[in-house]
Simulated scan of single mutants.
Amino acid sequence: MAQEVPDPPEAPEDEEEGEQAPLRRYLTRAGAERMHKELLQLLNEARPKVTAEVSAAAAQGDRSENAEYIYGKKRLREIDRRIRFLSKRLDTATIVTPSEQGDRTKVYFGATVTLEDEGGTKLTYQIVGSDEIDATGGRISVESPMGRALLRKSPGDTVEVRRPRGEIELTLVDIRYD
């Protein structure tokens, strides 16, 4: 089954309130699996361990001066905050499997692109959602300047990307949907 993944839509503005409606979030299947794995680790390992540590610290007596108890409660709040964040992201995200992309001649969400800069250096990036970015791992956001410039481009196209060190011209060499 081929799937056509649209570009990330612009957030429509709510006319009455002047606020923006939430954007539709996309995740690659691999990104969703990484987030799900982290969620399970927090729920099944980290939270029970910290809860046990807080209980042990609470049993020691005066909680107002008990650094272990205070730190443990803070860590527990951080874990709970991360669990809520991951749960919400996974529940509301649209999961995209790049290998099911129908049009493989252009760059869409999930594509792995090979680029060549002005000096002839080849760079490879995968276009992913904002929750999956890892520049050192070769994953850039579809919402980044480079991600936006590459959308709907074909091999041989040249794009100019504005970055903090100045503009750079990149040529799209190859597109893969792994």
Rank of each mutant, 00 (worst) to 15 (best):
H36N: 14
R75G: 03
G138Y: 05
L43M: 14
R176Q: 13
K74W: 04
F85L: 06
H36T: 12
Y125Q: 13
E33M: 12
V50N: 09
D157C: 06
M1L: 07
K122S: 12
Q41I: 05
R165C: 03
A58P: 01
K74C: 02
R165W: 02
V173L: 10
D7M: 08
R104M: 12
L23Q: 09
I79N: 10
A135N: 05
D91C: 03
Y125M: 14
S99V: 07
E65Q: 13
K153C: 09
D14Q: 00
L43G: 02
E10G: 00
L86S: 08
L170N: 06
K37Y: 05
N44K: 12
L76S: 05
D134Y: 02
R34K: 11
Y69N: 03
A57R: 00
T112G: 07
K106Q: 13
L76Q: 10
I133K: 09
T97A: 12
P9K: 13
D134M: 01
L172E: 10
G120N: 14
T171A: 11
G166Q: 09
T51G: 04
K49W: 11
T92S: 08
L86M: 11
Q3T: 15
Y69K: 05
A11P: 04
V128A: 05
G102T: 15
I133Q: 09
Q41D: 15
G119M: 13
A11M: 11
R139G: 01
K73A: 07
T51H: 08
L172C: 08
P9L: 13
T94N: 04
R84T: 07
L23C: 00
R104L: 10
Q41C: 00
G61P: 03
F85D: 08
V113P: 02
E15G: 03
P48N: 11
S55I: 06
M146P: 06
